[in-house]
Design a protein around this nucleic acid. Structure first.
Length: 344
DNA sequence: TAATACTACCGCCACA
DNA sequence: ATTGTGGCGGTAGTAT
């Protein structure tokens, strides 16, 4: 079931330090005839570029199409090096956006189903969700897509549990994402699942993507920072909060820093981030805890204190709820997968 | 595990 | 008239 995944799906992260075959994790992109160039490029940027400086064995990246012919993407053409057989052995199959009007070729849908049955996790960007739905991979599953397409997708495939308001949905072996930038977010989310926060943050920095954008919840990631004006007003305060995670923070203090009343701060915070201060703060603290668990041998007790949880019991409660495992199991599973932490 | 005390959140509304 | 603010109080959530 795990195939050659380097890291098991989110909710099962605690289980299965199963013996891993030493195959490079293969990411195959399924290029449909009406593929959108940008999303295809996102997959290439995150998974396809050589990253020797990261110091881990990077992905084996393949671009696979139903045809060996040139595909016109508007002003220029692409030709995939692989056919559908390139999906074989993939740990991850990415389906970038394509026109939702065209039914994908039957062969492509069959290849998608086969890959999934073979244990690959399947990821869609934007309208790529239509291909997953057409392959019956989304039946009864939580999923999302670009907001322009949610109604169409819902009416065409009523059994999908659609979540229009999230950046992306991680349902373990099926991941779907919303608009263009969410494709980047879900991709970095996968990198973190595979290689840990440090590597994912590094890639994000290289791509100059804001670091706030991955939430870190096991199942649903609400939009942490949408691109809306007004972001900048709170940005300074968000940074300040992130820099003081270890201290107990109240709404009054945060509002004070933002020079607002608590009531207004609450409202503005929700407008800007789509969530509440405490929830956001909690996710930042969990994120910091994960980094420390992955990269250091600092005892749980001290991680709890440094991340603002106070006691280890408190950290465990929240960690369990958000990451769906215990801190110790997380550290153990991560070390088993990733080997000793890099120095620095 | 239960009880307690505290805080966050948000609808409502008066007011700028 | 429209829009944003912030105090109040009930409920839900969190900490010990």
């Amino acid at each position: 079931m795990l195939g050659d995944r380097l890291f098991p799906p989110g909710t099962h992260a605690a289980a299965a330090p199963a013996p891993q075959p030493r195959i490079r994790h293969r990411v195959a992109v399924l290029v449909l005839p009406t593929v959108h160039a940008f999303e295809l490029a996102v997959a290439h940027e995150v998974f396809g570029l050589a990253r020797p400086e990261v110091g881990v064995e990077w992905y084996d990246f393949r671009v696979c199409a139903t045809t060996g012919e040139e595909i016109d993407v508007g002003g220029f053409t692409i030709r995939a090096r692989w056919g559908l057989d390139g999906l074989r052995g993939a740990g991850t199959v990415v389906v970038p956006a394509a026109s939702p009007l065209d039914e994908p070729p039957a062969a492509a849908l069959a290849a998608l189903r086969a890959a999934h049955a073979d244990g690959a996790r399947v990821v869609s960007y934007c309208s790529g969700a239509f291909a997953l739905a057409a392959a019956n991979l989304l039946d009864g599953r939580p999923a999302t897509t670009h907001w322009m397409y949610t109604e169409t997708l819902a009416s065409r495939y009523p059994s999908i549990d659609l979540h229009p308001d999230v950046l992306y949905v991680d349902d373990g072996d099926i991941l779907t994402s919303a608009g263009t930038s969410a494709a980047i977010d879900v991709s970095l989310h996968l990198v973190r699942r595979d290689y840990g926060s440090e590597v994912a943050n590094y890639i994000a920095r290289r791509m100059v993507v804001p670091p706030h954008r991955d939430g870190g919840q096991a199942q649903y990631i609400d939009r942490p920072i949408p691109a809306r004006e007004g972001d900048y007003e709170l940005a300074g305060t968000l940074d300040w909060i992130a820099a003081h995670l270890g201290e107990p923070l109240t709404i009054e203090q945060m509002a004070g820093h933002a020079l607002m009343s608590a009531r207004t701060f609450l409202r503005r915070f929700r407008d800007a981030t789509g969530t509440t201060p405490l929830r956001w703060l909690l996710l930042q603290r969990i994120r910091r805890a994960r980094e420390l668990l992955e990269a250091t041998d600092v005892p749980i007790e001290r991680i709890a204190a440094e991340c603002g949880f106070g006691t280890a019991a408190n950290l465990r409660t929240h960690f369990q709820r958000v990451v769906a495992t215990t801190p110790t199991a997380y550290r153990r599973a991560f070390r088993a997968q990733a080997g000793p932490a890099p120095v620095g």
